[in-house]
Every structure is written in C-alpha cells, then in structure tokens.
Design a protein around this nucleic acid. Sequence first.
DNA 1: CGAATATATCGACGAATGTCAATAGATGGA
DNA 2: TCCATCTATTGACATTCGTCGATATATTCG
Lengths: 113, 113
Amino acid sequence: MATRSRNLIQLSDGVCCAPLQSSPLEEDEAAELAMLFAALGDPVRLRLLSLIAAHDEVCSCDLEEPLGKSQPTVSHHTKALADAGLIIGEKRGRWMFWRVVPDRLAALRAALG
Amino acid sequence: MATRSRNLIQLSDGVCCAPLQSSPLEEDEAAELAMLFAALGDPVRLRLLSLIAAHDEVCSCDLEEPLGKSQPTVSHHTKALADAGLIIGEKRGRWMFWRVVPDRLAALRAALG
DNA sequence: CGAATATATCGACGAATGTCAATAGATGGA
DNA sequence: TCCATCTATTGACATTCGTCGATATATTCG
C-alpha cells in the first residue's frame, strides 16, 4: 500500500528509500543505505559508537584506551562514522568532542522496517 | 538506568547486546552485531534483501536479472545473507526459495536504539 | 540412463579495508 | 616564541571482499 513516495526515509544528500519491505530499492538508494550500514559493519566502530552514545559527549582522547587501538586508528574510525553522518564532532581547544546524531540512527531503524 | 541484563537483544548463538545507547558494547557483542551490519553493507545485498522482502518468497533464479549480476555472484550474496540469518532458504525441486527472517531485522532495529 | 536446468563451489583477479609507525598541523601554556 | 599535547594525514602492509568464468553437484524430465 505504501507507495514509493510515502514514508520516505530522509538521508543525507537527497531523498532515500522507503522501508525495505515496501518496495525494491533503486540502485542509488541501495548505495546510500549500504554506505551507512557498512559504517556499522566493523566491531571497533560499533564499540566506538556505543561509547559515545552511552555518554552525551566523548573526547577522542578518551577512546584510545577503551578501544585498545592506536590514535590514528581511532581517528580513522571517527572519520568514517562522521562521514556517514552517524556522529558529529566539535573541536574545543585541542580536543575533539563527538556526539551521536540520533536522527541518523532513527533513519536506519526506519529503513529496516 | 537500563542495566546490561535488561532489554537484551537476542542474536543467533548466544545473548547479545542491549541497545547502543544503554551501555558500551563488549567485544564479542560488537563482533556479533558488526557481522550483521556488514551483511547489509553492500548495495547488491540490500537490493537483494528488498526484492525478497517485497514478496513473500523469491526464487534465486528470479534474482539475477533484476540485480544484473551473474549467478555465482547472486549465490554468493544469498549465502552471505543466510549466514547472517537475515534470510532463510528452502530448496524445492531444482529451485531455491528465499524468505526474510523478520525477527532478525527486528533485532537489528532494536540494537539501533 | 542421459540431457537439461538450477544452484553451489572453486580459483583468480582487482579493489577496498583495517591497522600502525611516522609525520604534519593545530592549539594552548610557560 | 618555544615546547608540549591532541588530532589528522600519509604511506605501507596484510587481509578481506566483490566479481565472474569454469566446474561440480543436484534434480527433473524423456
């Protein structure tokens, strides 16, 4: 019943996707969604995301130790999640503080049905 | 407020994960979840999944053409999704019919918050 | 049985990915 | 200004991944 033009899930740049069940994804919609799921498809990034989500705001400097990864690796993963729009960073002084973007997680949830 | 022992999301083999926001993921929980998200992190697999989800049941033979991929590639992706428990297959005669596993999608949705 | 068809597996290939050491860039304090 | 510190980038490496042709396996039909 839901047509392609109803219950659309808003993703970053451009309109994207009804829930998976309602109709087959177009190629560009699938590419957009896949990029987001791929960002969650790594255990280090998932733990990183949950560390940020558990608090309101987390500094990059407080992520290396709980993740057990080097500073460049942490930076690599925060960049990946930020590129996906799942977290957003704010630089204050020498420190980089990260927050989750709840709408983005909600959009993924919606895409799953 | 939610402790680790409440609102747990049941994944395949073993207990797994409260929602991302409630507490940082353990390594094994993150590995389990990441495997699932990685399965969704490919545009071909997402389109494949949405093709199956849009109908009740889809034969492998009806996937090659809409996906524009070779038969081995389609088989590769159905196997990946099946290994992740997101679809389940039933062989009838020469044909393999695939259905989505709604609980599995619901579990992922729950893990996102 | 033998031919035809649907699916799975194998092998190979290029591309993408996760990791870290080394280095560069930015910021604040002495 | 100079140094210490936090973050980002670069380069290199091994590993994984997506893809397809070729082949193997399974099943139905004559």
